[in-house]
């Protein structure tokens, strides 16, 4: 099993150069970089971050579920899973309310990608974790409190 995994990884790095070339041609990462939502990511509070995302006064929705620990022992690594069963979910943003820069990430889904994102985030202190979902041109929101015993930012 492990030997197989090694081989797979070797294969992946070998073709990496080709993939970069392909990506450069097809995906134009330079353009994508320019599109990085600087104002939203550098916002220092939640309302500015929401404004940057273009999500003003999102409605609370029970169709969004946030799976995160009630108590995170290590704020540097807090596993968060967001599931949106709203039809036509096009993007999911994660906001950790009391972080220096609250917006953690904005995930744009296309093709057959389902309304599900799993990742790990940093949290400076106990706060609400918000999920802002765009579905059918409207914004929806859900929140869950995560208690942090050791902060992951600054320190």
């Amino acid at each position: 099993m492990n030997a197989l995994r090694r081989n797979v990884l070797k294969g992946a790095t070998g073709v990496g150069a080709v993939a970069v070339a392909v990506a450069a041609g097809l995906l134009k990462p330079t353009q994508a970089m320019a599109a990085w939502n600087k104002s939203a990511f550098e916002a220092k509070n939640v309302s500015d971050a929401m404004k940057g995302l273009g999500a003003t006064s999102p409605a609370d929705s029970k169709e969004i579920s946030i799976k995160a620990p009630d108590i995170a022992e290590n704020g540097a690594v807090v596993p968060v899973e967001i599931t949106s069963s709203l039809p036509g979910t096009t993007s999911i943003a994660i906001i950790a309310e009391k972080n220096g820069t609250p917006l953690v990430g904005n995930f744009n889904l296309s093709g057959g990608t389902q309304g599900f994102i799993s990742t790990r985030i940093k949290m400076g202190q106990t706060s609400l974790v918000r999920a802002v979902v765009n579905a059918g041109g409207k914004s929806y929101m859900a929140a869950k409190e995560v208690k942090v015993t050791i902060g992951g930012c600054g320190g």
């Binding site: 994508a32 599109a35 990085w36 939502n37 990511f41 540097a76 690594v77 807090v78 994660i94 950790a96 972080n99 820069t101 609250p102 917006l103 953690v104 990430g105 904005n106 995930f107 744009n108 296309s110 990742t119 790990r120 985030i121 940093k122 992951g152």
Partner: peptide, 9 residues
């Protein structure tokens, strides 16, 4: 297509 910030681990 994900835009992420320094808040990701």
């Amino acid at each position: 297509n994900a835009e992420i910030g320094g808040g990701v681990s």
